[in-house]
Simulated scan of single mutants.
Amino acid sequence: MTDAALLERLARGEPEALGAVFDRHASAVTRYAWALASDRRDVEELVQDTFLTAWRRGASIPQESLLPWLLVTCRNHALNLQRLRAKHRADELRDDLLATSGSGVEGGDGDDARDQLRWVMAEIEKLPAIDRRVCELCLIEGRSYAEAAEQLGLTVGAVKQRVLRSRTRLRKVVTDDEN
């Protein structure tokens, strides 16, 4: 059966047609999803979302380009997933600062990292209470803006604004100390 015939059946809402499309193109879509994502769960989600979109939009898929359409759809889902993750990802302190701050490493880099972490923590302590708590949740504990907003009873936008304002304040202190 050709892709065009499968698409006609898919457009009519025949579940067997989706199964046949999946059987025919799942390996190619899965290989492509692995090129776009490195986590098995993300790959599975991308493949599932791609074929779900094909099921929902079967009537609008061009008959001459089923596999290219599936691959473009997979890429679009991957981009959406990346945007979603980036939107909800909280900014964190650098891992090397956190890792070396509690280690027994003596000398050069370890001491510098501990000094930087102490300085950052001291400056965060000087912030107003709500800004300090936002920084503790987002920058130190690595919570997302959404999690911090929910815990503090704020909007996500307010949390983002407070983090931005606190960072600007910290940068200003660094700049003033260097001059």
Rank of each mutant, 00 (worst) to 15 (best):
A37M: 06
S38T: 06
D39W: 02
R40C: 08
R40S: 13
R40L: 10
R40D: 14
R40I: 10
R41M: 11
R41N: 15
D42C: 08
D42L: 10
D42M: 01
V43P: 08
V43F: 06
E44P: 06
E44M: 12
E44W: 05
E45A: 10
E45T: 09
E45L: 06
E45M: 06
L46Y: 03
L46G: 07
L46W: 02
V47A: 15
V47S: 11
Q48D: 12
Q48Y: 12
D49V: 03
T50P: 00
F51W: 00
L52V: 12
L52A: 12
L52N: 10
T53R: 14
T53D: 15
T53V: 10
W55D: 03
W55G: 00
R56M: 03
R57I: 02
A59W: 03
A59D: 15
A59Q: 08
I61F: 02
I61G: 02
Q63C: 02
E64V: 06
S65H: 07
S65E: 14
L66M: 09
L66C: 14
L66N: 04
L67D: 11
P68I: 12
P68Q: 11
P68K: 09
W69R: 04
W69Y: 09
W69S: 03
L71Q: 06
V72H: 03
V72N: 09
T73H: 11
C74M: 13
C74W: 03
C74R: 01
R75C: 04
R75Y: 03
R75Q: 15
R75F: 07
H77S: 10
H77I: 06
L79E: 14
L79K: 05
N80V: 01
N80Q: 08
L81Q: 13
L81Y: 04
Q82P: 00
R83A: 15
L84W: 12
L84N: 13
L84C: 12
R85H: 07
A86V: 01
A86F: 05
K87E: 15
K87M: 13
K87T: 11
H88S: 09
H88P: 00
R89Y: 03
R89L: 13
R89Q: 13
A90S: 04
A90V: 03
A90N: 07
E92K: 13
E92A: 15
L93P: 04
L93A: 11
L93M: 08
